[in-house]
């Protein structure tokens, strides 16, 4: 039933203990939104799932993360396969220094797809899925950097879908975008949840309310509580959650 199971996850950078004993189950084919104030470990949690975190110097990770009941931190795990399974949409879109087409085809190419016809299919399908196809179909060869930032974010989404992930990790995917582009991304994510498990990190409560099926609240590195959207937003059990959601000060 659960796609990702996090058990007793601790992360620290040097002396700074960022995540404290976090345990969380993330259900399959739903949107799970992690909320909490900035700088409390949301992004760290997200990047510990696809092991991008360990690239930072001086980071220590303990505890377990299971995806489909397999441990992500098992030394036998092929980390490139693991990351392929989990697409990442970051806060600021970063198009690779190449054309629109090549950006989407980048993933399939590094995983060995060479045939032009197959690549064309993949690129069109995923640009459509990300809602960008109509806008760029006549200029697939132009540099990705020439797109507007909202379009770039949808391009990044198409790029991450192109390697057929099972999970999409989104780190504040709309905070750098204008409201219109933000809405487009949100709509796309809501459509995609029938096929993907989606984890979104945000400090924007309105966005969380619109998107979420499940909600987790992180505060100062601790997962305070988690559950269905209704439970968290309408009937929070913890005082800190209630205060955060109602916009009162934390103390």
């Amino acid at each position: 039933m659960y796609h990702i199971t996090i058990k007793g996850l601790n992360v620290s950078y040097g002396n700074h203990h960022v995540l404290k004993n976090v345990s969380l189950e993330i259900p399959r084919n739903k949107i799970t939104v992690i909320i909490g104030p900035s700088g409390c470990g949301k992004t760290t949690l997200l990047k510990s799932l696809n092991r991008l975190l360990e690239l930072q110097e001086g980071v220590r990770i303990s505890g377990s993360v299971l995806v489909d009941d397999e441990s992500v931190y098992d030394p036998k795990v092929d980390v490139t396969e693991l990351r392929k399974k989990m697409g990442l949409l970051s806060q600021r879109p970063y198009p690779l220094p190449m054309s629109i087409f090549d950006n989407v085809a980048y993933g399939p190419r590094i995983h060995g797809t060479r045939k032009r016809k197959k690549l064309n299919e993949i690129v069109e399908k995923n640009l459509r899925a990300a809602g960008l196809w109509e806008e760029v179909k006549d200029r697939l060869k132009s540099p990705a950097a020439s797109l507007s930032i909202g379009q770039q974010q949808r391009l990044c989404l198409a790029r991450c879908l192109a390697v057929s992930p099972e999970i999409i990790l989104c780190d504040e995917p709309t905070s750098a975008l204008d409201p219109f582009s933000a809405q487009k991304i949100e709509e796309t994510l809501s459509e995609l949840k029938t096929d993907y498990t989606i984890v979104v990190v945000t400090h924007n409560l309105r966005r969380a309310r619109r998107l979420a099926d499940y909600v987790g609240f992180i505060f100062l590195g601790e997962l305070i509580e988690h559950g269905g959207k209704k439970d968290i937003f309408e009937n929070p059990k913890d005082e800190r959650t209630r205060r955060y959601i109602s916009g009162e000060s934390y103390l």
Binding site: L55, Y94, L96, I110, V163
Partner: peptide, 26 residues
């Protein structure tokens, strides 16, 4: 920028692929 590496790695590229196709290009 670090994001260049992150984007490539998160698609399942190896470090060498990332260096060769993204970092050096940039």
């Amino acid at each position: 920028p670090y994001e260049a590496r992150e984007s490539s790695l998160s698609l399942g590229a190896t470090q060498w692929q990332t260096v060769k196709k993204v970092v050096l290009k940039k």
